[in-house]
């Protein structure tokens, strides 16, 4: 954007030429590193078997379940995560730094361990799960709700971190201005802050959705694997890998295509919304 002597024509070719090779070379290597496995998947895909795979109702069942649970988990992340991000960004209480660090724990926890932790907390015999069972007769493991819980657990830190960062960058004085106009903190949040940070929330939601869609370890540990109920695409891929790697690759491609399509559509829509 800036730079370039007086009278220098700023065009794409010229700005590309200006990228220093110290950055360009690792950048290109990074891109290749990210895309090479994807390319391998495409090259080695059993294209001949693909139509057969796509014809099987199990694939669509797993895909439907994946999209449904990832979207519901993202909604759950939004409902709980945005207020959490606001509290972390806008209030001061003892131990706030610790709480902030704890929020990121699911990021570093191996997902399978996360699943075990969820079982210990929300399982039929878990700390809280026991009460849910006794009082409401609700058990989460082996249910679609359990899949949503596992995915939300793993995905929520992405949303919270993203939204908190946006909130910190946003000018808190808009909330003060709203307060002087008679808005309660909640009204200020809803009518002023939320619209201002909408792009950050959208970005966080996309991250969370993508993470939830690919979730495997916590899901299979907490919710098990039953076709149509808890067997999401990643689980189906993993099980197919056991004795039919070709089918696994085919399933992966379906998941990949759908997620790229959805993410691309959302991105277009969201950037268009910002520009308007």
């Amino acid at each position: 954007m800036r730079g370039g002597g007086p009278g220098s024509a700023v065009g794409p070719a010229r700005s590309a030429a200006r990228v220093p090779s110290a950055l360009l070379v690792p950048a290109a290597a990074g891109l290749v590193f990210l895309l090479l496995p994807l390319a391998a998947l495409l090259v080695r895909a059993p294209w001949a078997e693909l139509p057969g795979q796509l014809g099987s109702p199990q694939v669509w069942q797993a895909l439907r379940l994946s999209l449904l649970s990832a979207t519901t988990a993202t909604a759950l992340c939004l409902v709980l995560g945005v207020p959490l991000a606001w509290v972390l960004a806008r209030t001061d209480f003892p131990g706030r730094r610790l709480v902030r660090a704890l929020v990121t724990v699911p990021l570093v926890l191996p997902p399978v361990v996360g699943g075990v932790a969820l079982l210990l907390a929300l399982g039929r015999d878990g700390l809280v799960g026991r009460l849910l069972d006794d009082w409401f007769g609700v058990t989460l493991p082996f249910t679609t709700a359990g899949v949503v819980v596992a995915e939300a657990f793993v995905a929520m830190p992405f949303l919270v971190i993203s939204v908190e960062g946006t909130l910190r960058a946003a000018d808190p004085r808009f909330e003060e201005a709203a307060a002087t106009l008679g808005a309660s903190r909640f009204t200020a949040f809803r009518r002023v802050t939320l619209p201002l940070i909408a792009p950050g929330v959208a970005a966080g939601a996309v991250l969370a959705w993508a993470r939830a869609l690919g979730e495997f370890g916590a899901t299979i540990t907490f919710a098990g694997s039953f076709p149509g109920r808890t067997q999401t695409m990643p689980l189906a891929v993993y099980l197919a890998l056991q004795n039919d790697p070709a089918a696994a690759v085919a399933l992966s491609l379906v998941l990949l295509a759908v997620s790229v399509a959805v993410l691309g559509a959302m991105r277009d829509r969201w950037t268009a919304g910002v520009g308007a």
Binding site: L120, G123, D125, P141, G224, F226, P227
Partner: peptide, 17 residues
């Protein structure tokens, strides 16, 4: 549930799920 290996099937019982 159809578990992905025998150990995780066992774990579900050990955790009383």
């Amino acid at each position: 549930s159809y578990e992905q290996d025998v150990k995780s099937a066992l774990t579900k019982v050990r955790l009383k799920e």
